[in-house]
């Protein structure tokens, strides 16, 4: 079997002395969709942010595509990578945020071209061509000159997905992508994500959408109190949970 896309081994992370991740293990196979579920404060988002090094983990080993995240092994020592190297790593990992975080001062099209132009050095013309392709893919080809404040939340989130895809990522991270949306807008975002999953993108999704997890995920991990409580095939884990904790969590969200 080839190298997994993401490998997390005994990762710890604390903020101001409070341990948020207490030794997490997780493996994400290439081309598969992994869902992270769990109550708020369980460390799902922190784990996601450690994977693209938005947060530094304190202990443990974290590899993306076989490479250590944020560090380099030389001899028997770990060397912290410099900013340029870390940025180059991040550019290949797309991230979609709960609150979209579109660049408010740029149009929809500029939001999708800026990363390509400034980070990848693509020419503005080529970047625009790619941006228009992606906008068509997320069903927003008529919105390119709007500003984020002028479109709906669901549309903003689809633009945010297009913005991440423009960097041609090998891995996409979604941090509760539908939690800030009105219920009737959730579907359009999930549809784009399902489409993306079918195209073979490796995805890690922190979500409260259990139906999405059941339908799309290959593996689901249930985090609670900074550790993985339970994991496995979503149809089994979510329908017949073995731990009491997951059972009570599911009874609250479903």
């Amino acid at each position: 079997m080839s190298v997994p896309m993401v490998e997390v081994r005994a990762v710890h992370k604390s903020y101001n002395g409070v341990e948020v991740l207490k030794g997490v293990d997780l493996t994400v196979v290439r081309g598969e969709v992994t869902c992270l579920i769990g109550p708020s404060g369980s460390g799902k988002s922190t784990l996601l942010r450690c994977i693209n090094h938005l947060e530094k983990h304190d202990k443990g080993e974290l590899r993306v595509d076989g490479e250590l995240v944020g560090y380099e092994m030389r001899g028997d020592k770990l060397y912290e990578r410099n900013d340029r190297q870390i940025c180059a790593e991040r550019a290949r990992i797309g991230m979609v945020f709960q609150r979209f975080n579109l660049f408010q001062h740029l149009t929809v099209l500029e939001n999708i071209t800026i990363g390509q132009i400034k980070v990848k050095g693509v020419s503005p013309e080529a970047a625009r061509v790619k941006a228009r392709e992606l906008l068509a893919r997320v069903g927003l080809d008529n919105k390119e000159s709007q500003y984020p404040a002028q479109i709906s939340g669901g549309q903003q989130q689809r633009v945010a997905i297009a913005r991440a895809l423009a960097m041609e990522p090998k891995l996409m991270l979604f941090d509760e992508p539908t939690s800030a949306l009105d219920p009737e807008l959730v579907g359009e975002v999930l549809d784009v994500m399902k489409d993306l999953a079918r195209s073979g993108m490796t995805m890690i999704v922190v979500t409260h959408e259990m139906n999405f997890a059941k339908e799309v995920a290959n593996t689901v991990y249930f985090l609670d109190g900074g550790v993985i409580e339970e994991s496995g095939d979503p149809r089994e884990v979510l329908t017949a949970p073995s731990s009491e904790r997951l059972r009570s969590f599911l009874s609250k969200v479903l």
């Binding site: 693209n52 940025c87 660049f103 990363g115 400034k118 913005r163 960097m167």
Partner: peptide, 16 residues
Amino acid sequence: EGQTEAATSLGMTRRQ
């Protein structure tokens, strides 16, 4: 802060 995070996640340096 989300704006900086989004920029960072695209691979921009602090300066960019």
